[in-house]
Amino acid sequence: MARVVRFHELGGPDVLRIEQVDVPAPAPGEVQIRVKALGLNRAEAMLRTGNYIETAPLPSGLGLEAAGVVAAIGEGVDGFALGDAVSVVPPPSMVRWPAYGEVATFPAHLVVKHPSSLSWEAAAAVWMQYVTAYGALIDIAGLRRGDFVVITAASSSVGLAAIQIANMVGATPIAVTRTSAKKQALLEAGAAYVVALAEEDLGERLTEIAGVDGVRVVFDPVGGPAFEPLTAAMSRGGILIEYGALSPEPTPFPLFAVLTKSLTLRGYLIHEVVGDPVRLEAAKAFVLDGLTSGALKPVIARTFPFEQIVAAHRFLESNEQFGKIVVTV
């Protein structure tokens, strides 16, 4: 028996319950870990409310990221020993492989031995943010030295990861945030410039920063009306990568900018990298190199104990965080 978090109905954070359940042994090709820390993601709140790309069969577990020690190894798995310190690349289904629990099981190819210098909290905050940002910026957009890259929702864990990756390859990260309240923190986190949507004209400010050549890469989880000023500030042949739909407002298609500048508007989910063995191994290598060198450093917004999972989800939905929310087990 182990404690896990489940929900029996869709709704707000209060539907989450900590329950004692029997956790089966790992199947062939799986690794089971005794969890030390969990990383929280907005996708988990979306699953809980019925707004995610995956449908939860009630009652349902949830969670995409964990760090801990290897507790059991399924048949056919090599390269791990009991007690190894590991963290987990988000699986394709959090319903099939939920992370929120004292014990959790994952496909072996998604379990990684992380650098020993990482704390459990930092290790639980690695893979969703860095693989998401790597897949968009490096794998798809080919971000390189000298590029301007616009990063919206910049104070999120993925936004901060994107800032660090941009600096790692010599690009210039332009952080976009709602107000100037987080401006100084974003500058200290590595943003070269910060634009406050509610206080500045986005298009004018981006043109002022990037000049006539414009911004080659935009990395956006929001959509909505900002599509028009974002694309207006982009360079010929630029690429806008959309990985979310946070805006409640309609997203206009910027036809004139797309036609006149030959822009690419590209939808993207982390699953396309995780589901491709070659791309996944390249992502792992890039992230591990960055963690080892110190170029990539997870930013922890706040840590909650396992017993306060409801409070942790309330904070997740507050949009007050700067970086990753972590739960210790």
Rank of each mutant, 00 (worst) to 15 (best):
I18D: 07
L38Q: 03
V70W: 03
I209E: 14
V70C: 08
G190C: 08
G323N: 06
F304D: 09
P59L: 09
L246S: 13
Q321M: 11
I151Q: 04
G290T: 03
A108V: 14
Q184Y: 05
V15C: 08
D213E: 15
V103D: 05
G203D: 04
T260P: 00
F227A: 11
T260M: 10
V131T: 15
A301N: 11
A133G: 12
A233R: 01
P229W: 12
P28M: 09
H271S: 10
K113A: 10
I174C: 07
Q20Y: 08
S117H: 13
R96H: 04
A124H: 15
L280F: 11
V35A: 11
V194T: 10
F286W: 12
A283C: 07
V31F: 13
V77D: 06
D220S: 04
A226Y: 09
A85N: 09
S235L: 04
V287H: 06
F322P: 00
R236G: 12
F286K: 10
R3F: 01
L110S: 01
G135R: 05
A66M: 04
A141E: 02
D84P: 01
E317S: 10
F148C: 00
R266S: 14
A124N: 12
A133K: 06
G224Y: 07
E75M: 02
T251Q: 10
P24S: 07
V88M: 07
V212I: 12
E65L: 09
V131I: 15
F106H: 09
Y134R: 01
P26M: 03
A312C: 12
N319M: 14
R48G: 01
S157C: 02
V310W: 06
L288Y: 05
E317T: 06
P305C: 13
E44P: 01
A189Y: 07
S156Y: 04
G290Q: 02
D201H: 12
A191W: 04
D14P: 00
T49W: 00
G211L: 09
T231F: 07
Q32V: 13
L186H: 05
S119G: 13
A185L: 13
I270S: 00
E30C: 08
R48C: 05
G244A: 15
P298A: 14
V258I: 15
I270Q: 10
L118G: 13
L288D: 03
K284D: 02
G267K: 13
T231C: 14
S117A: 14
L269H: 11
H271K: 08
G159R: 00
A245E: 09
A191S: 10
V327I: 14
I165D: 06
F315S: 10
V149M: 11
G290C: 09
E65N: 09
L160H: 04
L64K: 12
Y130H: 03
P90A: 04
V287F: 02
G68Y: 02
Y243R: 12
T132W: 05
S117P: 03
